[in-house]
Each structure stands twice: as structure tokens, then as C-alpha cells.
Write a protein that binds this DNA or RNA. Sequence first.
DNA 1: CTAAAACCTGACGTCAACGTGAGATACAAG
DNA 2: CTTGTATCTCACGTTGACGTCAGGTTTTAG
Lengths: 118, 118
Amino acid sequence: MRIGQLAKRSGVSVRALRYYEEQNLLESARTSGGQRDYPEDALDRVQLIQDLFAAGLSSRTVVELLPCVSTGTATPDMLGQLTTERDRIAERIQDLSRAKSKLDRVIEDVVAAGVVKA
Amino acid sequence: MRIGQLAKRSGVSVRALRYYEEQNLLESARTSGGQRDYPEDALDRVQLIQDLFAAGLSSRTVVELLPCVSTGTATPDMLGQLTTERDRIAERIQDLSRAKSKLDRVIEDVVAAGVVKA
DNA sequence: CTAAAACCTGACGTCAACGTGAGATACAAG
DNA sequence: CTTGTATCTCACGTTGACGTCAGGTTTTAG
């Protein structure tokens, strides 16, 4: 599959895919003409990368963790980092939940007070 | 209260507080000498701002929403934006939960497989 | 064979939320 | 009064994940 196809199917930009390769997050074979040629499972990988980015992990962190995600094995250091990041995400979820509760209350209050005309 | 005190008590930097003022998120009275003088409730406000930032809202969005948060009233537009942001946060929470689940599984797998020596 | 798409590699631009001096002023302590 | 610490206003630097433009090559459609 070529880069445009992968971009469409994964929902990320062509530029982003090249960037992932630059960061060693994603490999690609090349055609004789030098164009990128991705295997089918690249799609899963891109989505995984996106999930981890969405979780606030940096590319540096992701590139360190991807190997254990694919292989299912890790050194003690890697396991430590995995749990560190997992915990960080859990905290973020707590923060977001707090913020959401605040907004929920504000919305409640506003609705209860009646919406003011422009 | 002066800016250093507010910074310590709120846990955000002096620079950040000045930035908030620049973005019209936070007001301050001034002493005759031109130094910022905050009322007690500035502390709550700073924490609210931090919560909303932590939730991924931009300063532009926060400055638009802060009035209804303080007053408890809003125009229809503001109510719409409030719910939009609330929903965005809810989605973020979903994303993070997905990412966390993935990491949880990876950690499980790694532990089950036995941690590899360095 | 040819024109249009799609792709390639640089390389500079962007944007937000500050960090980080520089140089000057204000205020508290002795 | 003087030293030291806090604060002031510019104003440029930082960082990450790309956006975007330039100039050239490859592939595909016809």
C-alpha cells in the first residue's frame, strides 16, 4: 500500500506518516522508484501510534515502548516506563474527569438559571 | 496578595500568571508602584484556569467561557460552546481510557511472559 | 507518449503556553 | 541610606507534531 492510501485509511496526513518514519516509529519498504510501500499491518501500527500520542506520550517515549508492545516482552526498565506512562494516563483521566464535572455543573447552573438572550 | 505569593499558593509560575493577565484570563489591581495586587479569590480562579487548561481547552476558549463559569449565566451561543467543550473532554477521556487499556494489556502480557534481563 | 496524479526530499513556518534573560524599578529590613 | 529581594516590562527562545511551499521524479490513465 502506498502512502496516500495509508493516510486515507488511517485518517492521518501524509506528512504525519513521513514524520513517523523520521522518528523511527514506522518503517516502510521502498519501490524501485523510491516510493514507500507499506504492509497491511502498518494500519494497526499507525492507529496504535495515534492512540499513544492522544494519550500524551511523546514520540521519544513511544519509540521506546513500541518494541514491547509488538513483542510482548520488556526489560525491567521498560516495564517501569510502561507503568509510569500508564499511571500518568490514569492521572490525566482524573484531571479530565474533574474538569468535566466542573463544566457539567456550570451547564446545570446555566440551564437552571435560564439562558440569557444574546 | 502579590504575584510571588499567588504563584506559590497556586503552584503555577510567576510567568504563567502574567501570561494569564495578558490573555485576559486574570485581572489584577496595581499598587502605586505598579505591582500586581491580587484579591484572595484569585487563587480559585487560577486553579479553575489550570483545570480547564489541563482539560485541553485553549486560552481563547477559556476566556470565552470564564464569564459564564463565574456568573452562572450564558447566552445560547455560550451554552452551545460549553456543551461542545464538555463533549470534547468526554471524548478525550474515552481516548485515554482506550490507551490505558492497551498499556494495561501490554503490561499484563509482559509480566506473564516474564521480564527479560537487560 | 504525454499529461495528470501521486510521491520524493529538504527546509522553513506554525502555534500555544510558557521559559529565560536583560535592564530598570519597587519595597522590606536593618 | 543601603542592600537585597521581589517585581516590572520588553522581547527573543523553546518544544512537539506536524503544515506548507519549492523543485524534481515516479506512476498511472488514456
